[in-house]
């Protein structure tokens, strides 16, 4: 399946991804307003598997994990950025949304097709005929993302502890 790129600039903030007035709402409703102040068509037009690409400091601002959660709820399959705000980065991985660091993210074009290999840490751009390498993710974080996030990871951990006790 070909997925496409939604390209944003530097310092895209979490208030834009999870607007304050919808923070009391269920995630499905909140997600309908994701990024509406920046790119009003995003929530309605994004398709399952699409990739959000950004510049520096993706996810600046709040600790609200509804920001990556909304992106995930809309079907975004991975994030690619030059750098992340640390809190947002942790939140994305904890929710099972891969966040790749790619120095060349700026050369990815809005709307172009993209294939992201999370485990290999590579981004192939068929239209440009090239593949970009990402910084390797620490192993334990990669495993947590592949397991679906921290909740799933904790479930596995608690289950393992339960077996030991028996």
């Amino acid at each position: 399946m070909t997925t496409r790129v939604w390209k944003f600039g530097d310092n895209l903030d979490t208030d834009a991804m999870a607007p304050g007035q919808y923070m009391k709402s269920p995630i499905e409703e909140l997600a309908r307003h994701c990024l509406e102040s920046v790119r009003p068509e995003f929530a309605a037009a994004v398709r399952a598997g699409d990739v959000v690409v950004a510049g520096k400091n993706l996810g600046a601002g709040s600790s609200r994990e509804q920001a990556p959660q909304a992106l995930k709820a809309l079907g975004v399959s991975a994030l690619v950025a030059v750098s992340y705000a640390g809190l947002f980065y942790r939140n994305a991985l904890n929710l099972g949304l891969a966040a790749l660091v790619c120095a060349e993210a700026g050369s990815i074009v809005d709307g172009e097709p993209v294939v992201v290999d999370i485990r290999a840490g590579s981004i192939s751009l068929p239209a440009q005929g090239r593949t970009l390498a990402c910084e390797p993710m620490p192993g334990f974080l990669l495993e947590m993302v592949m397991a679906g996030g921290l909740l799933a990871h904790l479930q596995q951990r608690l289950a393992a502890q339960g077996k030991e006790r028996r």
């Binding site: 994990e65 809190l87 942790r90 939140n91 904890n94 921290l150 909740l151 904790l154």
Partner: peptide, 10 residues
């Protein structure tokens, strides 16, 4: 430092 809710769960 600040953490998100799932991190807080951990």
């Amino acid at each position: 430092f600040g953490v998100g809710a799932t991190e807080m769960l951990g």
